[in-house]
Write a protein that binds this DNA or RNA. Structure first.
Length: 428
RNA sequence: GCGGCUUUGGUGAAGUGGUUAACACACUGGAUUGUGGCUCCAGCAUGCAUGGGUUCGACCCCCAUAAGUCGCCCCA
């Protein structure tokens, strides 16, 4: 028990940290190009922020939050997502004062108490983007492009971008009502889940696995037919922007976002081979959120990407780069007298910028040579009594199996030129 | 939160109701006293997720718990 990480959490071990930093580099690179600046918000916030921001009645708020009372009796929640927190920080720090449009991105841990599965952790990592203060559909398009191009920059293919509009506070209630009117006399034919959804979120009935194939489904009213003029115009514009830059997408009138704050544009990027957890990125516009949290009415768009899902996809497609950082020099010390001088030399090599290693266990020469071999070091430096007496060192080229005596005063410089030379050689 | 499947050493794994739990890789040591990669030899699970139970006896049977995984739900 003591030696087990809590359920749904995972250590990112040295061998895979490189995968994460690789992805993070891609994130920072593309965000810089699109003009998004990093923000880091606390891992926990006041519970109420999420209750108000995400919405009571959502699964995330009602059953998935890690909530506890702190010692001052305040209700605190580990963030289940970062949009509400980013908006809170935006308001608290008056970021709107600098620019009409504030563009932020974040990378970090999120927490949801769900049943774990591959691609669904209790602590998971998201990269997300928020563009606050602009209502133009061009920003919707920009944000979507950023998501798409991020995934493309990693080399991922077979991704599907789905697009929808979920309307605004003016037209969504009308659509809800239209759906309820449509389904009211069909409740008997719908599954149990859909009967629950009828009141809570009738939009979800549309993509119910059990009922989706029912004959009457195709006669159900579509969101896009019920949008108000403003939402419709906005949605058309978003599509135009995307088409203009040649992004492929699919309209999915059944795409619904689970969080209350979404308005107008909703989108999702899926990678089907991930199975039940195929949604790699999701987002949309949330024009009502900022006011909900206590700011002036401010339009905004954003998305979040699930990083462990991205990593799973990269692994499936064999797109993870090699990131070995091999030892360049291995120091072999023979006998008690050689240990201190060898350690000194090791330090000089490292100080000179070389990746140097040695054995500390005082093992046999053979064992040390084996280690040198395993470390993949191109060079071994051998120091024994004889060498120390002469103030020299044996420099062995492990690839060529050649060795030569080098004065201890020259060894660092010689190695630097050798190692640089072999680098150059590798590149050519 | 619901249902299915899985769980043997550092890793991949074979295996049987009954004395010493295959095999491979990895690891450690050795094969002339100061030289690696190949080869050979040796060592390496008092234990088969955990806790109970059935049995003369269980890693193999039963129950519970945990973790993983697939699907549902939800979402990234």
């Amino acid at each position: 028990m003591l030696t087990n990480a809590p359920r749904g959490t995972k250590d990112i071990l040295p061998d895979s940290v490189g995968d994460w930093t690789y992805v993070e580099e891609k994130i920072r690179d593309i965000c810089a190009r699109y003009g998004y600046k990093e923000i880091r918000t606390p891992v926990f916030e006041h519970t109420e922020l999420f209750q108000r921001g995400i919405g009571e009645g959502t699964d995330v708020v009602d059953k998935e939050m890690y909530t506890f009372l702190d010692k001052g009796g305040r209700s605190i929640t580990l963030r289940p997502e970062n949009t509400a927190a980013a908006v809170r920080a935006y308001l608290q720090n008056k970021l709107y004062a600098d620019n009409a449009l504030t563009k932020l991105f974040y990378i970090g841990s999120m927490f949801r108490h769900d049943r774990p599965q591959a691609g669904r952790m209790r602590e998971f990592h998201q990269f997300g983007v928020e563009a606050l203060g602009e209502e133009s559909p061009a920003v919707d398009a920009e944000v979507i492009l950023l998501a798409v191009n991020f995934l493309k920059s990693l080399g991922l293919s077979d991704l599907k971008l789905s697009l929808n509009s979920v309307g605004c506070p003016k037209c969504r209630p009308m659509y809800r009502k239209a759906l309820q009117d449509f389904f009211r006399d069909k409740l008997g034919e719908l599954c149990k889940d859909c009967n629950d959804r009828f009141e809570r979120n009738p939009l979800r009935i549309l993509d119910c696995k059990a009922d989706a194939d029912k004959e009457f489904m195709k006669d159900a009213p579509k969101v896009t037919d019920c949008l108000c003029d403003e939402c419709k115009a906005h949605f058309d514009e978003v599509q135009r922007y995307l088409k203009d830059v040649g992004v492929e997408f699919e309209l999915d009138p059944r795409l619904v976002r689970g969080l209350d704050y979404y308005t107008k544009t909703a989108f999702e990027i899926k990678y089907a081979p991930l199975g039940a957890q195929s949604a790699v990125a999701g987002g949309g516009r949330y024009d009502g959120l900022i006011e909900e949290i206590g700011g002036n009415p401010t339009p905004a768009v954003g998305f979040a990407v699930g990083l462990e899902r991205v990593l799973l996809a990269l692994e499936k497609q064999g797109l993870l780069p090699e990131h070995a950082s091999p030892t360049e020099v291995f120091v072999v010390a023979l006998g008690e007298e050689a240990r201190l001088p060898a350690f000194q030399l090791l330090e000089k090599l490292r100080d000179a910028g070389l990746k140097a290693a040695m054995d500390y266990a005082g093992r046999s020469m053979k064992a040390q040579m084996k280690q040198a071999n395993k470390s993949a070091a191109r060079f071994a430096i051998i120091m024994g009594e004889d060498e120390i007496k002469e103030s020299v060192v044996m420099l062995k080229d492990m690839e060529k199996s050649e060795q030569q005596k080098v004065s201890i005063d020259d060894i660092v410089n010689k190695l630097i030129t050798e190692v640089k030379g072999s680098w150059k050689h590798c590149k050519e």
